[in-house]
Amino acid sequence: MRYSTSGYLLSETGKSIWRNKMSSFLSCATTALSLFLLGVAFLININLRLMFTVVQSQMEIQAYLRADATLDQAASVVQAVKKIPGVSDVKYVSKAEALEELKAMFQDKASVLEGLGEDNPLPASVRVKTAAAEDVPRVAAEIKKIPTVDDVIYQEEASRRLMSLGRASQLVSLGGMLVVGLVAIMVIGNSIRLTIDSRRHEIAIMKLVGATDGLIVGPFLMEGVVLGVLGGLFGAGMVVGLYTWVVGGLESALPFIPVARLNMDTAGRMLGIMLTTGVAVGVVGSVTSLRRHLDV
C-alpha cells in the first residue's frame, strides 16, 4: 500500500471511476450516446451544405452571342463577363462546339441532324458559373447589357428555389444541431449531478477531515473530463462507423447523390465539437452540482 499526494489527483480519478464502475459506465454511455447524436447532426449539416454547393455549381447562365459576332468580339465578351463580381467560371462555346454537343446528346439518332447539312444554325455562346446561386439573377442582368450578347438564359425559378431551400435546410440543420447539443448538455449534466449526489456522504466526510474544496473538487472534475473524453471518443467511433456504412450503401444505390467524404478535416472538426462539448459539460456539470454540496 502506497500513498502519495503527487499522484493523488490521477490515482484518485482512476480509483473513483473504478469504484463506481456502474455509474461511471452509465455516465460514459449517456455521454457517448448524446454526443453521437450531436455528431450525426453535424454530418447532416455538412452534407446539406455540400449538396447545396454541388447543385449550386451546376447552375449555369448561358449567354448567346449575336449570329454575326466575330471571334474578337466573343473574346471581349468573355473578358467583360470575367470582370463581373460573383462570376467564378466563364467558358466560350463556339458554333461548331455547340453542334458537336448536340450531336453527342442525340448519339445514335444523329441522323436527325443530317438535314442541317453544312448550315449550322446554332449560335456561339458563353457559359457562366457564379460562386453563389443567389448571384445568378444579378450576373445575368449584367451580361445582358453587353452589346454582342443576344440573349441570356438561366433557370430563374430553379435558382431562386435552390437559394431559399439552401438557406432553410442549413438553418434547420444548424437548429437541429443546437437542440441536440443542448439535450446532450442536459443529459450529461444530469448524469453527473446524480453521480455526485450519490456521493454527498463521501464529500461530507472529506470536508469533516479538513479537505479543502479544491482537493474535493479536483478528482470529481478530472473524472468529469475523463468520462467526457471517453464518451466523446466512443460517440465519434459510433458516428464514423454508422456514417461509413450508410455512405457505402448510399453510394452504390444512389451514385448521383453527392455525399461528403469523411476526410481527416471533417472528422477532426466533428471530433473537436464532440470532445469540447463532452469536456465542457463534464466540467460545468461537476462544478455546479458540487457547489451545492460544498456549501458549509
Partner: peptide, 30 residues
C-alpha cells in the same frame, strides 16, 4: 462516518493526505 469504498488504511491515510502529507512518513503514521 468512514468512506465505505476505501480500505481501513486509506480511510486513515486520507486524513493525512488532505494536509499535504505524503510518502513514507504517511505510511508510517498510518
Amino acid at each position: 462516518r468512514l468512506l465505505p469504498d476505501r480500505t481501513v488504511g486509506e480511510n486513515v491515510a486520507f486524513a493525512l493526505m488532505v494536509t499535504g502529507y505524503g510518502g513514507r512518513d504517511l505510511q508510517k503514521s498510518v
